[in-house]
Every structure is written in C-alpha cells, then in structure tokens.
C-alpha cells in the first residue's frame, strides 16, 4: 500500500489553539450571563417581597415580612391555595387513573389503529395551549363548566394525560413481558397481576410522571386562565391578575404572592428532580425510549 501516498496533516497553529480557547470562553461567558440574569430576576422578586421602600436604589430601605401577611389577606391566598391544590390533586389523580392504563395498553398491545391513537395523544402536546384553550373554553362555557373548578380540571387534563402516556410507554416497554406471563402461570388474574406485579414495578415511573404533571399543572397559566372564573382561580392565574392590575396594590404585595407561588412550585420541582432528569420536563426521556 505504499505505492501511493497520503499528504501529511496541516501543522497545528497557535492561532487555532487560541481561537478554540476563546470560543470555549465565550460559550461559558454567555451561559454565565444568562444564569446570572435569571438568578437576578428571581432574586429581585424575593428582595422586593421583603422590602419596605425600594426606589432609585440598589436595595430597599429596610426589610419586613409584613407584605406576606397583607398579601395573604388581600388576595385571599387561603382560598386560592385551596383551589389550586384541589385542581392539582384532581388532575394528578385523574391522570394516574386514565393515563397509566392507556399507556399500558399502548405499550403492550399492537392493535390496528395504534398509530392513530398515538397521533391523538401527541396532538395536545404539539398544539400550544392558547390555541386549543380558546375553543375548549368556548365549549366548556357552552356546557356550563366554564368558570367552575371542574372546567379548570378538565382543561388541565388535556395536555397532562397525553404527557403521562408518552412518559409511561417507554417505561412500561422496558419491563420484561415475561414477568406478567410468569404471574399468570402462577395463577394471578388480571387485576391481581396488575396490583401485585405491575404496580410495584411501575411505581417509580408513575411517581415521576405524576410529579411532573403536578409541577406542570401548578405552572399551567393559559388553560387555567381561559377556563377559570372568579372562584376557581389557581395561584398562577391570581398572580397574573395581580401583575396585570399593578398599581392597584403595592408591588411588594404582588411579589410576596409571587414568592409564595414560587415556593409551592419549587418544593415540588425539587421533589420531582429526585426522580427525574431535568431534560424530562421538556421532553420524554429519549434514553429509555431508544432501542
């Protein structure tokens, strides 16, 4: 093979090494800039919620916790929190009840029209919530559900049930079907097989999926906003109205509500992150879905 030759590679230049260092540096600098501003935004809300007077200065003149007390009364946060957790609880429960069995069927059976069902479950995740929220709100109002807590729950099920299904399908697929076969051989019926064999195996996946549903529902603004009435506002909707009507109430009071919202969301996010990878919040895990 030595009758022909291959040219040697270009010699390395110092310029190239420097350019590569500069490139790496700028990527990190940019990321850092983003993260610093992000933290700044969150810190500004927290600082303001504890501040007394904050005008034309780096920091408020003094610090006080009393905005939390006034926000609690002014915005009737007790009621709003109760509504929020009723909505979230119902959505999580119904997602488990409806989504997990559907995911099981999709993962274990290969039936005619399965692709059509898959498309049906993908669509609500691909269409942004404002787009389908307006016709959905129209229909809910037509049936008298609009403005009630049931309307808010129903609307929130539209993106969350498919979300649970899509997360659970790869999770169920990776469980060996022979496990179920073995349970049947030993005489377990469908219900007992599910309760004693599948449920314990699926528990981590279900838990992760439901925690993600919980976090998403807490933060779901558009659908709750379009379907909620005055008595069925969730926390994020109340926050929107608070910010929207800025000037009516002191900004620190709104910030106090924002912090309360932030804390409720982040507690659950932290719990969820014990079980899932952050990337799963935006996309179903490709790792487990892959071959």
């Amino acid at each position: 093979m030595s009758d022909y030759s291959v040219p040697a590679l270009k010699p390395i230049s110092k310029l190239r090494a420097a350019g590569s260092k500069l490139w790496i540096f700028s990527v990190w600098a940019l990321t850092l800039f983003f993260v610093v501003n992000l933290i700044g935004i969150i810190a500004a809300v927290i600082t303001s919620s504890f501040g007394t007077r904050w005008l034309r200065a780096w920091f408020p003149a003094g610090f006080t916790p009393h905005w939390y007390i006034s926000a609690w009364d002014e915005f009737q946060l007790g009621n709003i929190l109760a509504t929020t957790f009723e909505v979230v609880g119902a959505v999580v429960f119904l997602c488990a009840l409806i989504g997990v069995p559907a995911a099981y069927a999709m993962a274990r059976r290969d039936f005619a029209g399965k692709r059509a069902f898959m498309l049906l479950f993908l669509l609500p995740l691909l269409v942004p919530s404002v787009t389908f929220g307006i016709p959905l709100a129209t229909v809910l109002y037509k049936f008298g559900l609009g403005g009630t807590i049931w309307g808010v729950i129903a609307a929130n099920l539209v993106p969350t049930v498919p979300f649970v299904i899509l997360i659970m399908i790869p999770f169920i697929e990776q469980i060996d079907p022979r496990m179920e076969a073995a349970a049947r051989v030993f005489g377990a019926g469908t219900v007992r097989m599910f309760l004693h064999v599948m449920l314990p195996l699926l528990a981590p996946g279900i838990l992760a999926a439901l925690l993600l549903v919980l976090v998403r529902t807490l933060g779901m603004f558009e659908l709750s906003f379009l379907t909620a009435g005055p008595t069925s506002q969730t926390l994020v909707v109340a926050l929107y109205y608070g910010v929207f009507a800025a000037g009516v109430r002191p900004v620190q009071s709104i910030d106090a509500m924002a912090v309360i919202y932030m804390v409720t969301s982040l507690v659950w996010l932290l719990v969820a992150l014990q079980f899932v990878n952050p990337t799963q919040i935006v996309a179903r895990s490709k790792r487990s879905a892959g071959p």
Partner: peptide, 8 residues
C-alpha cells in the same frame, strides 16, 4: 435552567 420553565 429548568427553573424558568417550571415557574412559567
């Protein structure tokens, strides 16, 4: 980075 997505 997942914070702003969660917080909305």
């Amino acid at each position: 980075l997942v914070l702003p997505i969660t917080l909305g």
